[in-house]
Computed example of a mutant assay.
Amino acid sequence: MSEATQEQQLTEQQIANWQRDTLASSQKHLAERGIVPQSIFDKESRYLAPFFAVWKIKAQNGRTYWVIAGRLPTDHAEISAAATAREAIRYFSLQWQLKADQIVHAGVRDKTQLDFANLLINRAHGLYEFYEKDELWANEPK
């Protein structure tokens, strides 16, 4: 099934539920790292259900973060890493490739770590494909 077909099969309610779940996952991710979310920048956040969401979240510490969640590892970066959600997914893609490379080149033999490196590589490549699709970003604020 193609990505477009899969997306079209989701109802508005399923998309809303998925969006709520990825936001909750993003907030939990930050909280687990001692970062307490304060507010969401809805207009600058982006999502492509059921694949990924990139949330722009302001924390109580005064800093703002990009948080990515969905069918990939949940991760975050300070806003200085990227000006837009599109740039944020490129940033995460590149960071994941670097992390995977570090795992592989460290001579890690642990299957869990190698599986994680492979997951990072796979998701990084997929994420970069979304970054390259201009039509997905036509309405993104500059």
Rank of each mutant, 00 (worst) to 15 (best):
L94V: 12
Q14I: 01
T22Q: 13
F52G: 07
V67F: 03
K56E: 10
G62N: 13
D42P: 03
T5H: 05
L10W: 12
V54G: 02
Y131G: 01
Q27G: 02
G70Q: 10
P141L: 11
L72I: 04
W96A: 07
N17P: 02
R46W: 07
A69Y: 07
F130Q: 15
T11V: 10
Q13L: 03
Q38T: 01
E135P: 00
A49F: 02
A100L: 04
Q8D: 05
S25M: 10
E3Y: 11
E7P: 00
Q9E: 11
G126F: 04
Y91L: 04
K99G: 00
S2R: 09
G62Q: 15
S2Q: 06
I15Q: 12
V67D: 09
T5W: 05
Q60G: 00
D115R: 10
R86F: 02
T64L: 02
W96G: 03
F130I: 12
K133G: 00
A49Y: 04
H125G: 02
S45T: 13
R71H: 09
K43F: 03
E12T: 08
A88C: 04
F52V: 14
D134H: 10
A88K: 06
D115V: 00
E12W: 01
I15K: 14
P37S: 08
Y47N: 10
S25K: 14
I68H: 02
E78C: 00
R63T: 08
I68W: 02
W66S: 07
A81N: 09
L23A: 06
R109Q: 14
Q13H: 08
L94P: 04
R46Q: 09
A85R: 10
T5E: 15
L127V: 09
V54R: 04
K111D: 09
I103W: 07
A31N: 13
G107V: 12
Q27W: 05
G62S: 15
N17A: 12
V104E: 13
F41Q: 14
W96E: 11
Y91W: 15
Q19C: 02
A117T: 13
A24G: 05
I121T: 15
Q8P: 00
N139I: 08
K58R: 14
